[in-house]
């Protein structure tokens, strides 16, 4: 039963919105959509195709490709039919923004805050878009590929003195 429901859903979405399947995602079966269609797709999925559960909302950064730079991945699950489906939405690099699906799936609220914090993807219509994991005054969006890892060079014997000059770890002065 779940296989038929999956085929039916994929077919109806492809016909209604003109989507195509993604070759990149091996599991679950995925469609590629436009940012502008996303709210309507979510409405259709929840109300007509019984996908009442948003299980995954994440993004991937493909820098240095600028168009598209981000790919936002939505994962849906249907409790009644036991089917999983996913939708990928490509976004461009400068001022990436997409409308929020928080009105349809309430669980997307914190996921979208995390995407804003980590990637800088703006969600239009989100009631409370602010940083969630990083400190409030942090600058930059850490999970972007052009953000440095912040790797600290370990201090071995051959570079002992150079690193010692740069930071005074361990030697704490009493205030």
């Amino acid at each position: 039963m779940s296989e038929e429901h999956l085929k039916m859903t994929l077919k109806s979405l492809k016909d209604r919105f003109g989507l195509h399947e993604s070759e990149l995602m091996k599991y679950p079966p995925t469609l590629v959509a436009d940012p502008a269609q996303m709210v309507e797709i979510c409405q259709v999925l929840r109300d007509e195709c019984e996908f009442n559960f948003l299980c995954e909302l994440t993004a991937v950064d493909y820098w240095p490709e600028e168009e598209p730079r981000f790919n936002v991945v939505y994962g849906f699950y249907s409790h009644a039919k036991n089917v999983r489906i996913a939708v990928r939405v490509p976004l461009n690099g400068d001022n990436p923004s997409i409308s929020t699906v928080e009105g349809i799936y309430r669980g997307a609220n914190w996921h979208e805050r995390e995407l804003w914090d980590m990637f800088g993807i703006h969600f239009d219509g989100h009631p409370d878009l602010r940083r969630i994991l990083m400190p409030y005054d942090w600058e930059g969006h850490p999970l972007r590929k052009d953000y440095p890892l912040g790797y600290e060079e370990p201090q071995f014997t051959f570079n002992y003195d150079e690193i010692d000059k740069r930071k005074h770890h361990g030697r704490y002065e009493e205030a």
């Binding site: 440095p148 790797y151 361990g170 704490y172």
Partner: peptide, 20 residues
């Protein structure tokens, strides 16, 4: 010394802020 995680998000060793 921040162990396995050598990145932007962690203090590299708590002795950056308190004497151990």
């Amino acid at each position: 010394c921040s162990g396995v995680f050598n990145n932007y998000a962690l203090l590299q060793g708590v002795d950056e802020v308190v004497p151990v």
